[in-house]
Computed example of a mutant assay.
Amino acid sequence: MSTLADVIVVGGGVSGLTTALLLAERGLRVRVWSRDPATATTSAVAGALWWPYRIEPAALVAGWSLETLRVYEELAADPAETGVRMVPGVHGGERSAALGPWARSLRQMSEVPEGLRVTLPLIDMPTHLHWLEGRVSAAGGSVERRTVRGFAEAAAEARVVVNCTGLGARELVPDPGVRPVRGQLVVVENPGIEEWFTRADPASSTTTYLFPQPGGLVLGGTAEVDDPRTEPDVRTAREIVARCARVRPEIAGARVIGHRVGLRPARDAGVRIEAEELPGGGLLVHNYGHGGAGVTVARGCARAAAQLVG
């Protein structure tokens, strides 16, 4: 027999776990229902550098992002436990004048010939997701493997349901505005690179980035809209390595140790944080549509969603 809860959060990625943590820390009885283990979610595939990338609406994203940044800066005091490190790097081709007012809040930022040099949170997602699950449990919550076919299932066991299903919201809500943006990565043995680099063109389906993570150097990437393929493409992998090697030539000889593909949960209308009544009288709170920046806005969006729980 399932234990009744005050809140059931559907979705066990970074958005779901962060929302569940804030609710559990308020003293609510929280259960997280996730079809997949955290290490198999889209969040686990993320690079994951803090930066408001491919996410709307801009007017709200800035606040959510900065709130999350401050939390990551604190968590970076214990990277082995939280997975969060503050790492310097360069956004190729960027200039501070082209960014929004939020960029003035960034620390250790300067313009260099290549672009914008700044120190930002770089998160090892498997470690961070494990840490979040542990924090939820320590706060009295639970994380359960369960496939949800409709929010009524959760509403039968809790007065509030929080929808953090990411791409799954397309069918569950249903919301046809939710679309996959395919991202492919290559992981190679790190030849000694300690700083990250990115160069992204929002109008292109290809990006170039390299992130030094504990498990290897993560190379990327792609941003292929409406492409649901989850298997790595061999030609794409070769192109990713070649682009990154033009930035750091030593990458050309690095041994490939893995391939990753994730489907970013983009939404045409941007992030949805909104509450609605369920037919049986319960409350459904939405927190989805984070596109390529779920890690960047995780804490800010979780707080906004938690406020709607009441």
Rank of each mutant, 00 (worst) to 15 (best):
E274V: 09
A305K: 15
E194Q: 07
P174D: 14
A20L: 07
L129F: 02
A237G: 10
E195S: 02
W131K: 03
P37K: 05
V71R: 14
A252S: 10
T82Y: 11
E189M: 03
P79S: 12
T222K: 14
A203L: 08
T42N: 11
R179H: 04
S65N: 13
G215H: 02
G11F: 09
L66N: 12
A5L: 00
V143Q: 00
E114V: 04
E189T: 08
G141Y: 08
V218S: 01
P232M: 06
V10I: 10
V136W: 07
D233K: 15
T119R: 06
G92T: 04
L28E: 10
V14H: 10
I55V: 15
V173N: 11
G16I: 10
I251C: 02
V14M: 04
P126T: 01
A38R: 11
D78L: 15
T68F: 07
T39D: 15
F211C: 02
A5S: 15
R264V: 08
G166S: 09
A252T: 12
L49M: 15
A169G: 05
H290W: 12
P202I: 07
V218R: 00
L122C: 02
N163S: 14
A97E: 14
V112P: 13
R229P: 11
V271M: 09
R135P: 00
P249S: 08
G11H: 02
E25M: 00
V225E: 15
M109D: 01
V162H: 09
G100L: 05
M1E: 13
V160E: 02
A200R: 10
T39S: 15
C164W: 12
A304F: 09
S205P: 12
A298K: 14
L219Y: 01
G221V: 03
T230W: 10
E56F: 07
A58M: 12
E114P: 11
W131I: 05
S204T: 07
T207M: 11
C244D: 08
G258W: 01
G89M: 12
P232T: 04
P113R: 00
E133T: 05
S204M: 01
L284A: 11
T127K: 08
R248T: 09
E114Q: 11
Q184D: 00
V7L: 03
G166L: 11
V178Y: 14
S65I: 13
E94L: 11
D227V: 09
R243M: 11
G16P: 00
A139R: 04
E194G: 01
V61Y: 10
G100E: 07
G221N: 13
I55N: 07
V261F: 02
A97T: 09
E81K: 13
R243V: 12
T207H: 08
H91S: 05
T147W: 00
L22V: 07
R260Q: 13
E67C: 13
R303S: 10
I193A: 02
A98S: 05
A305G: 12
D201K: 06
A302T: 13
D175A: 06
R238N: 07
V9C: 03
A252C: 04
G183E: 10
G291A: 15
R246P: 00
G166M: 09
V148G: 10
G300K: 15
A62V: 14
R264K: 11
P101T: 01
P265C: 03
P228V: 15
A306Q: 13
A152P: 06
H259E: 12
S137D: 00
I257V: 12
Q213L: 14
E250S: 13
G177P: 13
V10F: 01
V10R: 03
V136F: 07
I273L: 12
I251V: 12
W131C: 05
S15F: 00
